[in-house]
Design a protein around this nucleic acid. Structure first.
Lengths: 139, 139
DNA sequence: GTCGTTGCAAAGATTTTGCAGCGGC
DNA sequence: GCCGCTGCAAAATCTTTGCAACGAC
């Protein structure tokens, strides 16, 4: 009989969770590490990574899938959607009621048990758009 | 007056594009590198990365945003959606007509110029589900 | 012939891991 | 007191880059 190992709430884990919940910029592990260091100056980056993994498995946070190659995290676990800038990879929330209808054929995903979905809009943010207009080379 | 530099179609670039188009598994750069090496044994991984970047900028391929931390690429640039397994990160296509309605409030994304959207469903594939049932520790 | 591209190898960036001591429960 | 967790540092993984030779146009 397998059993799930106990998970302890350490000071580090609690502060990582609190800090992520107060941060609405969908930070990378490293960005969050620097924020947490203001409260816990001796915490290590490895601990931040390990806790983000654990908290994600516990369902207390979400690992975003849109980091431009880098992982990003979200302390808001309510269903919501995101816009992302193709150039600077900034990620912002979309109000929940902006997406009015989303109907999915139920047998479309046979072979998978669904856990949820994420909808990403890709665009150019105004700041990058201005830069782009100044120099074509950016692409 | 800035001008866009000329882009050449080299043998390497063409074969990378052809190989990606024939691959429906949304490969990582490294997976594609090993496939391309069957045709071009001396190609380097750096060349594969550089060309994937270039082809993405040319709009001939798509960089997927769902790689579990690693970048994945798709030779199919038609609008379509994906299912991904949370555990093995496998990505599969969803038939285009499976998502019947998707209505977005137009002013929801002010501050961004929209380029497109991607819809990801997250689930557990049958193979990982079986493994998970055998040993709870998986997570 | 020009200049974008390649292979190679080294560097850079990001994430994971081994380990001995620490500290929740 | 047990055993999960931490800090540290090293390792592993993934991606980018400098450079001289090459090759598309």
């Amino acid at each position: 009989m397998p059993h799930r190992r106990q998970v302890r709430m350490t000071k580090q884990r609690q502060i990582i969770l609190d800090t992520l919940r107060k941060t609405c910029t969908h930070p990378t592990a490293d960005e969050l590490y620097h924020k947490v260091r203001k409260t816990l100056p001796h915490i290590s980056l490895g601990t931040v990574y390990r806790n983000l993994e654990t908290l994600n498995n516990m369902g207390l946070i979400t690992r975003l899938l849109f980091g431009g190659g880098q992982m990003r995290f979200d302390g808001n676990i309510e269903t919501h959607h995101h816009v992302s800038c193709r150039y600077c990879n900034r990620i912002e929330d979309i109000p929940e009621d902006a997406v009015t209808t989303l109907a999915i054929s139920p047998d479309a995903m046979e072979g998978f048990s669904m856990l949820g979905h994420e909808l990403y809009f890709v665009g150019i943010c105004n700041s990058c758009k201005e830069k782009k207009e100044q120099r074509v080379e950016m692409r």
